[in-house]
């Protein structure tokens, strides 16, 4: 088994397929038995240079379930960075007080740099528009749990495929598992060619659609994201396409029974609330899975599991 002790997690490509699988198996153990005080003598620094309540609570809840002490900050105005301290110095100071750092930062590349500066391992909880690897791992865990496997699945990605960071990471990760991709988006928000390159390099297939209806029947997973009005240069264009990426009860008709709907949350109106009570809705459970995956990561990186 691969040893993840002392490793950083900055980008989804930092870990091999086997290493992902190891974390996902461990996450299942924590889901079965979440309260294990394995990190009782450990201190985890949770530092959020930009607010992200959802991600922060998930990490801190994972740390608490493992019995670790959590230090840090969640309000950027309260940090010494707002007083002009460099990221370098903040990380140097925090790595002296902690065994592991969880960091969210608004600048791309901040996590890679902080990990180079830090004396303790670092988990990237999002660096600007770049990477958010634990979100990707919880997506993988949710897919594995609902489909019983990761291999040979039809993955449908819907909405803003151009700017959606979680979409890009998920495509990259699923390229390891012989997926077929169905890409549903307005023309203006198509998956960038740099991300399609990963699919081509893995010699996998992808199909593009502009209306979600055309991809529902074939899907094992439908991964929804929000289409934001601000992304359109022409507001009329937004009005024209805004309904083509909305999932409602009528659109679901003809889907496979085993199909599950994922969403990184928060949702606005791209999934109508009448879908929530269907057996296909999985997005709230998906968020909860984040805690187990983060428990698994922390335990593995600190060498306890």
């Amino acid at each position: 088994m691969a040893n993840l002790k002392g490793r950083n997690l900055i980008s989804i490509t930092d870990y091999t397929k086997q290493e992902y699988m190891q974390i996902l198996e461990l996450a299942a153990e924590f889901e079965a038995n979440p309260r294990q005080e394995l990190l009782k003598d450990k201190v985890i620094a949770s530092i959020f240079f930009e607010p992200s309540t959802r991600t922060r609570l998930s990490f801190e809840s994972a740390a608490s379930l493992l019995g670790a002490k959590v230090i840090g900050f969640s309000n950027p105005a309260a940090t010494s960075q707002s007083k002009g301290e460099s990221l370098h110095d903040t990380i140097k100071m925090l790595s002296a007080y902690s065994d592991l750092i969880v960091m969210r930062h608004n600048k791309e590349g901040a996590a890679r740099y902080a990990a180079e500066v830090s004396d303790v391992p670092l988990i990237n909880a999002g660096d600007g528009a770049n990477q958010h690897p634990t979100q990707c791992m919880l997506d993988l865990y949710s897919i594995l749990k609902t489909q019983g496997k990761l291999d040979n699945l039809h993955i449908t990605l819907v909405g803003d495929l151009k700017y959606g960071r979680t979409v890009h990471s998920l495509v990259q990760a699923m390229c390891n598992f012989n997926a077929t991709f169905h890409l549903v988006s307005p023309v203006e928000l198509k998956l960038p060619s740099s991300v399609k390159m990963h699919i081509k390099r893995a010699k996998l297939d992808y199909y593009q659609y502009t209306n979600i209806k055309d991809a529902v029947a074939v899907s094992d997973i439908i991964y929804m994201t929000r289409v934001q009005r601000e992304r359109f240069s022409d507001p009329l264009e937004y009005e024209k396409v805004k309904d083509s990426c909305i999932l409602d009860l009528a659109t679901l008709e003809g889907c496979q029974e085993s199909m599950r709907i994922l969403h990184p949350l928060p949702r606005v109106n791209e999934i109508t609330t009448d879908v929530d009570k269907t057996q296909n809705a999985y997005y709230f459970q998906q968020a909860k899975n984040g805690v187990y995956v983060r428990q698994a990561l922390m335990a593995a990186i600190l060498g306890i599991k």
């Binding site: 460099s86 370098h88 590349g109 740099y113």
Partner: peptide, 14 residues
């Protein structure tokens, strides 16, 4: 120099 203005290398002395 990195072309991304929001890159950490353009916002920290490094």
């Amino acid at each position: 120099k990195c072309i991304n203005p929001n890159c950490i290398t353009n916002n920290e002395e490094m």
